[in-house]
Design a protein around this nucleic acid. Structure first.
Lengths: 240, 240
DNA sequence: CAGTGGTCTAGACCACTTG
DNA sequence: AAGTGGTCTAGACCACTGT
């Protein structure tokens, strides 16, 4: 089997195919996948390539591997599926919980950085920020209130032209020419009024995020409220 | 440089050495590490081996890698260091936040499984469970109240002989001959009375965990309360 | 341009599980 | 004994970054 597309790496392509086969039960829950050699032969790639794909799926908890035995589909994870790479992508989180997801932009406007914002973003207090206040809906029900703050210094178009439906990664890429490399998220409990007003629930999870570039520059802040009476925040942790 | 110990893999050994060098600033924060070829030569291993080590450190956010440039120590992560593999290890979480950690066992006793417990653990309601109620202290201050429930069927000694200071992974290994392969954690906000009594704070994070074996059998439950007014729950997420 | 990390191959040997 | 995943090597070529 040939895979020719140049833009995506072989690892990514095989990863997507295997993921899809697990999702649509071509590889049934709880049952065994073909061996590494079998997969390598089918895709016409080396065993090492197959192994890097399987290692990724294993870290996410999607498959379980047993030396001397085989690789199995982890049926317990199929209904959970909020693995760790997906935490800051609220749309994926909602969809993997079995809901349809949509975004309602409440406001996109300029504001100025507080002392606290400035310190974290390594800018000056009073500098201009883009402030996005958005509501993530699961089956039309508001579940996450997300505030994002991005320094305007790299903004390449008027605020009005920004598409508020996009994911923060895409917004940073398209309008600021910046790529997120990693993020730090602080999770705490909250009983804020802001959360109550928009989500109809006073008690919620508060997620404070900071996004950084490959060069370790702070790119953006997030301050979100998560209605955990409706949506569950589940993490899968695979050991070794 | 020769590495001869057989018990630990080369990857593990190199991993520990590099980790230590980053921790003690042999590789200073923000500065560049030796190249892959340089490290491979120093340790006398292949470049592929070095790359698997660097990949692990990169996923944890400890280093940043830039094609065509080099590998850098991520100085922002040094003070955070609650990467995702470490979430369920409360002692490590406390220590990496800069506190000394200790465990106070409040009670270790037998109890019987509720309907809910039995369903999750795939046993029968009324079956015997070991119930451990423990307090994790950060600098002598209680920050986490942890309840664990483990089916007694595999218990190989009297309850009295169990060392309540051990980590749940060690307890399962030593007294039950079971190894944790992965875990699912559900995070929510809570205002339970139980949390208030032991932690002195009504508002807290509730962590519900289920631990599974390599064979996908549920091994244990956890129901913990996390005082986030004192300790921070921070996650690092590295993208690809 | 030289040097870096990113990708991929082909093959060796080992440890383990299952029939 | 046969087949599985686990570890490691040596080397090739590519994409990208700095100077």
């Amino acid at each position: 089997m040939m895979l020719v597309t140049r833009s995506k790496s072989i690892v990514e392509q095989v990863n997507e195919v295997l993921r899809e086969r697990i999702r649509n039960a071509t590889y049934a829950p709880g049952l065994r996948l073909p061996s590494e050699n079998g997969l390598a032969e089918e895709f016409g790639v080396s065993r090492a390539t197959i192994r890097t794909v399987l290692a990724k799926l294993s870290v996410e908890g999607l498959i379980l591997r047993r030396q001397g035995d085989g690789t199995y589909v982890n049926e317990r994870i199929l209904e959970v599926n909020t693995h760790l790479g997906g935490l800051w992508d609220f749309s994926r989180l909602i969809e993997s919980s079995g809901f349809s997801s949509s975004i309602k932009a409440l406001s996109l406007q300029e504001t100025t950085a507080t002392e606290e914002d400035a310190r974290i973003l390594a800018i000056k207090a009073g500098d201009k920020l883009l402030w996005m206040k958005r509501l993530f809906l699961a089956d039309e029900k508001p579940v996450i209130l997300a505030n994002n703050f991005i320094p305007c210094s790299f903004l390449n178009c008027p605020v009005e032209e920004i598409n508020g439906q996009l994911h923060i990664r895409e917004i940073l890429q398209r309008y600021f020419q910046q790529r997120i490399s990693f993020a730090v998220t602080e999770i705490s409990s909250s009983n804020s009024k802001e959360s109550f007003n928009e989500l109809g629930n006073e008690l919620s999870l508060n997620l404070k995020m900071t996004f950084y570039s490959e060069e370790n520059q702070p790119l953006a802040l997030g301050n979100s409220y998560f209605n955990d009476t409706f949506l569950r925040l589940r993490l899968v942790q695979a050991w070794a």
